[in-house]
Design a protein around this nucleic acid. Sequence first.
DNA 1: GGCTAGTACATGATGTGTCATCCATCACGG
DNA 2: CCGTGATGGATGACACATCATGTACTAGCC
Lengths: 149, 149
Amino acid sequence: MTDTRWLDDDEQRTWRGFLRLQRQLIGQLNRQLQADSGLSLADYDVLVQLTDTPEGRLRPFALQTELQWEQSRLSHHLTRMQRRGLIDREECADDGRGAFVVLTDAGRSAITAAAPGHVDTVRRLFFDRLTPQQVATVQQMSEQVLDTD
Amino acid sequence: MTDTRWLDDDEQRTWRGFLRLQRQLIGQLNRQLQADSGLSLADYDVLVQLTDTPEGRLRPFALQTELQWEQSRLSHHLTRMQRRGLIDREECADDGRGAFVVLTDAGRSAITAAAPGHVDTVRRLFFDRLTPQQVATVQQMSEQVLDTD
DNA sequence: GGCTAGTACATGATGTGTCATCCATCACGG
DNA sequence: CCGTGATGGATGACACATCATGTACTAGCC
């Protein structure tokens, strides 16, 4: 057990800043979405995946790998979204265990209504405040950090 | 109402990458802390603030401004931490409305035990995977994005 | 003193994420 | 056909975050 290399002041500032940045961004995005269209960021992500398919239907496990969510989180979330009428579940003929998640009309109009405002907010809070060089760095970082695992 | 400037593919990748990066990092940090010392990241942050004071006592509103938490989140969280014996509440003589949050012995030993492993993890997952230049960019970014508001 | 704001904090309701666990079904070797 | 293990998915319990609201006290101001 070697000695811990504590974070120096600079590193502390960076780390705290990163945590705060991330919490602020997510928080504001969530509030904007919630206020303007009654959706959460998670709802939005699910709906986007569904609208990206021609039929507006996906197997949950496909959604799961797209979103990189835990399986039970997805299941719970789908239950809540179904209760709110944004999606529906259908049985899967091919696989007796499986199911389909289907976009409802309400779901489709919700995402259609929400998208412009959300994209504007992402642009305003994130891209507009960073230089192209910084944006490129973020891209690199996410690849580096995520791949190394 | 002008037309929405949608995100191009590159921007989409960057944004998704950032979201995923952040979720992964927080998730792993939380799991490590939880597994190794039974604390959450939030617990850890509260305890750090308390240990930074000579007496291990702070007014909740001071904690709030340090952590930048919502007041009710803090209050709920303190209730849970108190129930687990990590902190205690005391009345404040100066201000009849106020209170003090005090570090208990259990709380102090919990943070002492947790700190090395947590710092190691932060280093391993974040700092060790980034170049000094990237770290500097993160620092800049958090300042830019957070100040602009 | 009495009125009015504002501050410090708590609480309840509700939505969200995680863990552990369970059930049904599929795939496959015997 | 029959086990055995893997896969697709649901569920209950619980920790956590947020919103709206409530309570108690302080601090002016008349």
